[in-house]
Design a protein around this nucleic acid. Structure first.
Lengths: 141, 141
DNA sequence: AATATAAATGCGAATGATTTGCAATAAGAG
DNA sequence: CTCTTATTGCAAATCATTCGCATTTATATT
């Protein structure tokens, strides 16, 4: 998922390539492995001497979500975002300390469908999140 | 998970059995299969002619969580709660329409541990949520 | 390159969920 | 029955997120 691909997807979906949007995407690419809070994102943007209004960030996160360019997970009472690096259906293994994530494909869908059916449900979708401590963090908790 | 067990766990943990707490527990037992929003809970309580302040409900949800008596899942920008009916480690299959949930034990923990290790992570915990439509809801979407 | 137009921005205010401070009340130990 | 401390209800605060609106800007079109 590089800049050009992201830009062309947005353009294809009739979204303008604004300065703000580009800045946000830059941050996501720079931090491609991390799940970031909205606050993290704003701080990262501030670090490069720019400020985007929170409403702008939120609106652009919605745009990126709409174009399937980011993954979103819920954390406490807020959300975390990460640029999507894997096209296929996948899930995440996330570091509880730093938010570093690994995407993985493993998904026992057949079993999930079976569990649903056994209970009279029609299966629609699954969510798996694995948590742990990454290489770096496990050594300095 | 019946009333007496819940009461004795709370008592063991030095929580008082207040009128409000009992009312909340009654609702959870009556709706034992459903994930309820805080609003749902308050409405159910109102149905029996009682009103509990939202802060009281929230504080008691925290108490029940602390004693491991409820399961909590995030839904949009709020939380849903259900009385815990399965002691062991488990996950949920949840109806997207009515919130009816089934607890199931299946969990490929070994695989999760392996995925974590392969990526240099120390595994700590997993979350699986399955979504679909239950028997009743799938016929009248 | 200049213009038109619809989308996007920044700001401030609104919303919704949840939490908190505090004075009044009630549970349960003795 | 009394005392102590947790718990409650209320109002206000907080936090994350969304919205209205006037202004600005990206980009399609002249």
């Amino acid at each position: 998922m590089n800049l050009d691909v992201v830009y062309s997807i947005l353009t294809k979906n009739d979204y303008k390539l604004t300065k703000q949007r580009k800045v946000l995407i830059d941050i996501f690419i720079k931090k491609r492995d991390l799940f970031l809070s909205v606050e993290d994102i704003q701080k990262e943007i501030n670090k490069i001497g720019i400020n985007l209004d929170l409403s702008t960030i939120y609106r652009n996160l919605a745009v990126l979500e709409d174009s399937n360019l980011v993954c979103k997970i819920q954390n406490g009472n807020s959300n975390l975002y990460k640029i999507r690096t894997m096209k296929k259906h996948h899930h995440h293994l996330i570091c509880k300390k730093c938010g570093k994530a690994v995407s993985f494909e493993y998904c026992p869908t057949d079993t999930f469908v079976r569990i649903a059916e056994e209970n009279g449900y029609t299966f629609t979708d699954d969510k798996i999140e694995l948590y742990g401590y990454c290489n770096n963090c496990k050594n300095n908790l």
